[in-house]
Design a protein around this nucleic acid. Structure first.
Lengths: 343, 343
DNA sequence: GAAAGTAATTAAAGAACTTTAATAAGTTGG
DNA sequence: CCAACTTATTAAAGTTCTTTAATTACTTTC
């Protein structure tokens, strides 16, 4: 029996986390503001802030504007306290984003893809970053495959990465906090964070990628991974008498009228939206701008209303997939840094 | 910005909750056991337990067996501290279960259904319980309809209950803590609790009821309600070129061979399992014993393997729906009682 | 430009939990 | 049945937070 309650023993760390969270969110804050937002008394905030200042985690940036009395000290997170690296591993490129402790991208690099070459190339690339940035502490890898606790265990077409324990490997080698996430999961998470909406929404992010369609799903604010990390493999959905989603979306072998092809795609998408509505009933379904236009979406909206009552349909949005993906990876990296705290 | 952290101010109540939770789970416990299981120091447990004893929430039941030293005092929850009422509202009956503070069913009654008559009859029935059991503090209603925060807002065929705010009505009238839950949601929750498995599993509970098929869904241990409380309305799933799930399962108008009919049902079910596998990838899908036999299930298992890779399929189980439903309602009631604590 | 007002910080007192020590209550074996 | 050993309970001391009060540092106004 596990009890997920907070023990008073970890109060200290909890307090620091709350301070970090507010400081990250508001960029700069005063003792009074922190006390108000966290609900912690100001003497405790003041004391903790002093300690964090001594340890270099926060810095005093000056005094705020007065509202008729003594001017308050303003603190912010120390951007140089540590750095994090967010890496998207794609077929054609590896995208590296270097982040400071306040979440700013302080460096971005696109290097050649490593998925075909093998893990050695990746280790090499990461090695140069570790060397260049001595206060690197967190590493996030986004991969187009199924991941369980830092280990890639299903990654079609890239056999060399199969069953590779990234987390074990790089935590040992580089003494970094490492996490690995599936690309679509990172993408929904990225949208979820950027949207700023109620964090308990349910979302589905759809992508008709090169490796076949896939979806990232969040329910009640958590990423859905599934019992065998198979969630979101929508290509298998049996939506027609004798075709699944993937087959319906695919270019048919025989040359075909463009209009007819588009109609088929729209219907498949409409059915997909209907499937999610009749199961999860999510707030929003996201599509990639490479897959769908606003006009397509209007038709999908109309189409799915034929399958389920229109009142229950999610809002449909077109998004830039890469932006949300990178943002998701960055976000994961920042969260790790903020949870690490002191060195 | 809301921070869901625990404030030290509510430590006292948190401690009591943990004690209650362990005491509920283990029935009877000693100071040392409670300290060990909760991680709270034994002087604090001891002090809190004394207070709870004075307030009548726990009782001393005697001394435990010695393991070579002084015999420990044993405490348990006071069964008579308060009572709760769990009600299932079905078309043909209303099932009432009266629960004591340790979660035992101390009374069960099946009264005539009230859904056709209207809320007055229900109020009457509940009224008699309130009168008979003065320490009734919690009421849970299970209804075959969509519910939002104690208010029924979509209940096909039972117009008289539409838009009825049960929670507001009965909390005011009877000064009880009231909650209302959709029947299938209560059912998955019931199975989830009874199974005793990892609480973070994902589950789908399927029921081909009188009011059309529906499903209760849990993901990562939470019930999925959906943006418009439409989740689990699987009858609308577009699984065939020109039929949805409901139409495929329904008795066709033209007389038909029994074998053929069964085959159709099995295929529809297989597709349904495939749909959930390719979206949520749940650990388990539950079926009602009134809908499916073990033999049917074996065929569904085989059938769904045609649509998705067999490794990712959930385990399929046949369950007694009513048992899980009632258990879920009881569980909800008990949780409310335990969260209420003192009077 | 000092007096009065306002707000931030520091200091002191109080509350609640933990850790450690002391005491009380049982068991067991000769 | 009593000495030696175990274990539960009670008591005391130590932490860490909150609450309240005192002090300090500004603004504003006459």
């Amino acid at each position: 029996m596990k009890l997920p309650f907070v023990q008073p023993k970890m109060m200290g760390e909890m307090i620091r986390r709350q301070i970090r969270a507010v400081l990250y969110h508001d960029s700069v804050s005063t003792t009074a503001e922190l006390a108000q937002k966290t609900g912690i008394s100001f003497p405790t905030i003041s004391k903790t802030l002093d300690e964090m200042n001594d340890q270099g985690e926060v810095v005093l940036t000056g005094l705020g504007a007065s509202s008729g009395g003594r001017r308050p000290k303003q603190y912010r997170l120390n951007a140089d306290h540590m750095a994090g690296l967010a890496v998207a591993l794609e077929k054609d490129y590896s995208s590296y984003a270097l982040l400071n402790y306040v979440g700013e991208v302080i460096g971005r690099e696109k290097l050649p893809g490593v998925l075909h070459d093998g893990p050695e190339r990746l280790t090499e690339q990461i090695g140069t970053f570790v060397q260049r940035y001595p206060h690197l502490r967190a590493l996030t890898l986004g991969v187009p495959g199924a991941v369980n606790n830092g280990r890639v265990f299903h990654i079609p077409d890239y056999e060399k990465f199969k069953n590779l324990d990234f987390k074990g490997l790089y935590e040992e080698r580089f003494s970094l906090q490492v996490q690995v996430e599936n690309d679509m999961n990172a993408t929904v998470l990225g949208y979820h964070d950027r949207s700023g909406d109620d964090p308990n929404r349910s979302l589905v992010y759809l992508y008709l990628g090169q490796n076949g369609p896939g979806a990232g799903i969040m329910v009640n604010g958590d990423v859905v991974r599934g019992s065998s990390f198979f969630s979101g493999e929508v290509s298998f959905l049996p939506l027609y008498d004798s075709h699944n989603f993937s087959q319906a979306v695919q270019e048919p072998p025989s040359a075909q009228d463009g209009t007819e092809r588009r109609e088929k795609l729209i219907d498949a998408m409409s059915r997909l939206v209907a499937v999610f509505t009749a199961t999860l009933n999510p707030h929003t379904v996201l599509f990639c701008s490479t897959d769908m236009t606003e006009r397509d979406l209007a038709d999908v909206r109309k189409g799915s209303a034929c399958y389920v009552p229109a009142d229950n349909l999610p809002s449909l949005l077109v998004r830039d997939w890469e932006e949300d993906y990178f943002h998701g990876l960055n976000q994961l990296t920042i969260r790790t840094m903020l949870s690490l705290g002191i060195d």
